[in-house]
Amino acid sequence: MFIATLIAKESLNERDIQSALASLNEAGATTTRQSDLIDGRVIDFFFDGDPVAARAHLEKIGGQIDIAVQPESNRIKKLLISDMDSTMITVECIDELADYAGIKPQIAEITERAMQGELDFAEALHGRVALLKGLDSAAIQQCLGERAKTMPGAETLVQTMVGSGAATILVSGGFTKFAKPVAQAIGFESFHANVLGEEDGALTGILDGPIVDSARKDELLQSISQSADIPLALCMAVGDGANDIPMLQRAGLGVAYHAKPKAAQAADVAINHNDLTALLYIQGISADQWSRK
């Protein structure tokens, strides 16, 4: 048995619901039941059939509606692992940091190509960091305060999952000087990111220690899942770029959040219209159960 969840940015109407039922029928699925309308904009359909075909047909409905198709079992996740830049915060920190060095367009172009999967991530990261050599280290804190804004729904998502007993890990191809305060502000239990080299109050243009790249994110998901005795089926991974694809494919549910095409294609679910609270609706957690500051 599978669940198809429709999450509207604003509201679902009867026409949307009937279109979804017709789409499931066209996909050869047998709908056994449906939930009541949840919070005016979410509904679950329970069905037997091919989940891939169901998702493909449902995504043709259009409008500002996100679709999630998943097995009915293991719906509630016990581990959340998430990317940071453009996922839990609204910007790419290295691009914003480059703005203080006056080279944002040059670095942002490389970032975009790396996130699209057109460039080797590690090579692109080393190249961008090298361009920041000599930048005053104080720019990091300034950038953090002025540019690193929390993505809508991030705190509610993380704190609700923490409140339910889930483990939460922030994994970033960015930098610890951003990841640590972001993780603390949102409520993640732990974080992993790259260390920017600094000397005499300025960036050295190199990284200290191993790189958190796609392989490392995947390794962290596997090792944390194993050490916490949480099956991968009960893990949710969230990201937006090619660097996130291995962990999106490894987790029981991989969610591409406002993502690049390759990441969206690789993930089980693509959220394009809603904020991060959509990841709670996917788990069957309605707004009256959310944790809020």
Rank of each mutant, 00 (worst) to 15 (best):
D229C: 11
D275Y: 03
K104E: 15
T87D: 12
S286A: 15
Y257P: 01
I7C: 05
G209C: 10
L79G: 05
H192D: 02
K260V: 08
L21M: 14
Q226C: 05
N272H: 09
Q116H: 13
Q34K: 15
P261K: 11
L125I: 05
R216K: 15
S291I: 15
K104Y: 09
G163F: 01
A167M: 07
V42I: 14
D66N: 02
S227N: 09
R33G: 03
Q222M: 13
A266D: 05
G165C: 08
W290K: 10
E72W: 10
P181C: 06
I206M: 10
A264P: 01
P152R: 12
A215S: 14
D99N: 13
I282D: 04
P105G: 08
M247R: 10
Q226D: 09
S172D: 03
G134E: 08
L131E: 05
Q226W: 12
V269G: 06
A54D: 01
A98F: 10
T277E: 04
D48Q: 14
Q283L: 05
D85V: 03
I110C: 05
E96N: 07
S286L: 07
Q265V: 00
G153H: 03
G254C: 08
A68Y: 03
D136Y: 04
I140R: 05
E199P: 00
R41Q: 03
A167I: 15
A20L: 10
W290C: 09
V91A: 13
I67M: 04
F46V: 14
T32H: 11
D208V: 15
G173P: 02
T5L: 03
G284Y: 08
I76C: 01
A108D: 08
L279K: 09
A183V: 02
Q18K: 15
V238G: 08
G254I: 06
S214H: 13
I271C: 00
